[in-house]
Amino acid sequence: MEIVIVPAERIGDLAAGAVVALLARKPDAVLGLATGSSPLSTYAALAERHRRGEVSFARARGFLLDEYVGLAAGHPERYREVVRRELEDSVDFAADAVQGPDGLATDVPAACADYEARIAAEGGVDLQLLGIGTDGHIGFNEPGSSLASRTRIKTLTPQTRADNARFFASPDEVPHHVLTQGLGTIREARHLVLVATGAAKAEAVHAMAEGPVSAFCPASVLQLHPHATVLVDEAAAGRLVLADYYRHTYAGKPEWQGL
């Protein structure tokens, strides 16, 4: 796991740079798209780079990390709508190139199995963007999730619903259930890029990177991945014991390596 500690305003551009570099060498790459507040600066940076003619998504495909269960099609907080609004509308993805799990499915197990099959049919995810919850969840894999889990339905914890309430008119509107790629699914992506900012994420970042690999902190599964990049600002890095070493390592990293 590579931990990069930089000012918050640089994080989106660094993550976007990894996507741009990937698409330069593999224009038909498969991207894993997260939602929430963490990836927004990355999407804004990608939109700007596309506007400048530096990157094209015309041959790329995308798969959403997760989706709320029960939000009507077109609901502004449905993750399919969020990704359309924050990224797709500003770049040149082909029609239907971005897919998400079906949060309105009547047969949920079948919908989850189908989503796994669609990801596999595209050759798997090349680069997966991730955020991290204050309790250490990635996607909506709450504490206690199996480290080998696949796409499935999950019940949100009260803490996660409270954290996400800021996106809704009322806390009561936050759904109780979601469909999420599992930790086993996420681990199969070839490159994981996790973004975290702010002091509220510091304990989760510490548990993820320097604690034991445990279902208690689902994000700790990144320790088992051969190519995981964690981009954090100083506040989110505030509990890292080896922070000085991470800074030293990144400062001396050869530029050709990229992320």
Rank of each mutant, 00 (worst) to 15 (best):
V4Y: 04
V6E: 09
E9A: 14
E9K: 12
I11H: 09
G12Q: 12
G12N: 12
D13F: 00
A15I: 09
A16C: 10
A16M: 10
G17L: 05
G17T: 05
V19K: 06
L22C: 06
L23G: 08
K26L: 06
K26H: 05
G32A: 13
G32K: 11
L33C: 07
L33A: 08
A34L: 06
S37R: 14
P39G: 12
S41F: 05
S41W: 02
T42V: 11
A44V: 05
L46Q: 10
A47C: 04
E48D: 15
R49Q: 15
R49I: 07
R52K: 15
F57P: 00
F57A: 01
A58D: 02
R61W: 05
R61T: 10
V69S: 01
V69K: 11
G70M: 06
G74A: 03
E81A: 11
E81V: 08
E86P: 00
V91Q: 09
F93S: 04
A95G: 13
A95I: 03
Q99V: 10
G103W: 05
L104S: 08
A105V: 09
T106A: 15
D107K: 08
P109Q: 07
A110W: 00
A110S: 12
A110C: 03
A111D: 05
A113M: 05
A113F: 04
R118E: 13
I119T: 01
I119F: 01
A120N: 01
A121W: 13
G123W: 10
L127G: 02
L127H: 05
L129S: 09
L130V: 13
G133Y: 02
G133E: 04
T134V: 14
H137M: 03
G139C: 01
E142L: 03
S146A: 15
S149T: 04
S149Q: 02
I153M: 15
K154P: 00
P158D: 04
R161Y: 02
D163W: 06
N164S: 10
A169N: 11
D172G: 13
E173L: 15
V178Q: 02
V178T: 14
T185F: 04
T185R: 02
H191P: 00
L192Q: 10
V193W: 04
V193D: 01
L194Y: 01
V195I: 15
G198I: 11
A202H: 07
M208I: 07
G211P: 13
P218V: 05
A219K: 05
S220K: 10
S220Q: 10
V221L: 13
P226C: 11
A228P: 06
L231I: 11
E234S: 12
A235N: 08
A236G: 13
R239W: 09
D244Y: 00
R247C: 04
H248N: 03
Y250V: 08
K253I: 01
E255S: 15
Q257V: 05
L259T: 00
